[in-house]
């Protein structure tokens, strides 16, 4: 059923990673991405893997979640591996048959890229696993707030995102209800050609649009009734605060990063 779709992948918990300031988490995730691309020796990459595993271990996210986030990118992983394996023609020859030529450089790069992509996805997924969508938008708003100086409507964008996130479950429920109602009137959404099925969605989409507009109007009115007038001078109930955990996290990341740079130069 449509209700089974999970939006966002937040996994509530009380681990140190969960308790970190979302702003720090976002920044460290970016540092982590840079780290993976700075590492160009195998030992450096191993440190990257170690960092990912370490982060997952202390966040107590179950291991099967790692597999879950990798599932959608399997085609990309395979594509990258194949591309690197067959199209890099430098280095020692390992195998040749007709126009196929596999070299040790090719194998190296292929493995390197695959490991890098996996680490990238798994590592960044940790951010969404341990941070609620609302905290994320909050943090993004704060991180982007300097852009206000060049007249970017940061608060409005963040508010739009928050509202969108808040209404996703509501809309799913509504879609479910309307679909049931139309099915009860004999609408057939499961069989027929693509064109027929697309047309069968009209009786669902129109009521959905109508109710979305109605909801938007009601929400706008409710917000105005509570004197909402944009982000200026607005205070927050939940203040973001950098605490002890964040300093430790930054320190750990710096140590790993330094390790990678040192290894790059030594080996």
């Amino acid at each position: 059923m449509i209700k089974d779709i999970t939006i966002g992948q937040f996994f509530p918990g009380k681990s140190p990673v969960h308790r970190m300031d979302p702003r720090v988490k976002i920044v460290l995730t970016m540092v982590f991405i840079i780290m993976l691309f700075v590492a160009d020796k195998i030992w450096g990459l191993l440190i990257g893997i170690a960092f990912t595993v370490f982060a997952y271990a202390i966040s107590r996210i179950p291991g099967k979640m790692i597999l879950k986030c990798l599932k959608p990118i399997v085609p990309i992983i395979i594509f990258t591996a194949v591309l690197n394996l067959f199209f890099i023609r430098t280095g020692k020859k390992l195998f040749e048959a007709g126009f196929i030529l596999i070299t040790d450089d090719g194998v190296n790069t292929a493995v390197f890229m695959v490991v890098r992509i996996i680490c990238l996805i798994v590592g960044t997924s940790l951010l969404t696993y341990t941070t609620s969508p609302i905290d994320l938008t909050d943090a993004i708003e704060r991180l982007l707030s300097p852009l206000k100086l060049i007249k970017v409507p940061v608060h409005e964008l963040a508010m739009m995102m928050t509202i969108a996130l808040r209404f996703i479950p509501t809309l799913i429920e509504e879609t479910d209800k309307i679909m049931s109602a139309q099915k009860a009137r004999g609408a057939d959404m499961e069989t027929g050609s693509i064109v027929k099925r697309a047309r069968a969605l009209v009786p669902v989409l129109i009521p959905l649009f109508v109710s979305s507009f109605r909801r938007a109007e009601e929400l706008a009115l409710a917000m105005e009734c509570r004197c909402y007038h944009g982000g200026e001078g607005r205070t927050r109930m939940k203040q973001l605060k950098v605490s002890c955990v964040d300093f430790v996290a930054v320190a750990v990341t710096v140590v790993f990063f330094a390790g990678i740079i040192v290894i790059n130069h030594l080996v």
Partner: peptide, 19 residues
Amino acid sequence: RALRFKVGLVFQYPEYQLF
């Protein structure tokens, strides 16, 4: 589907299904 036509179901707030 044929059996479904024998049992008509009017949901709560059915006016939201008009299109």
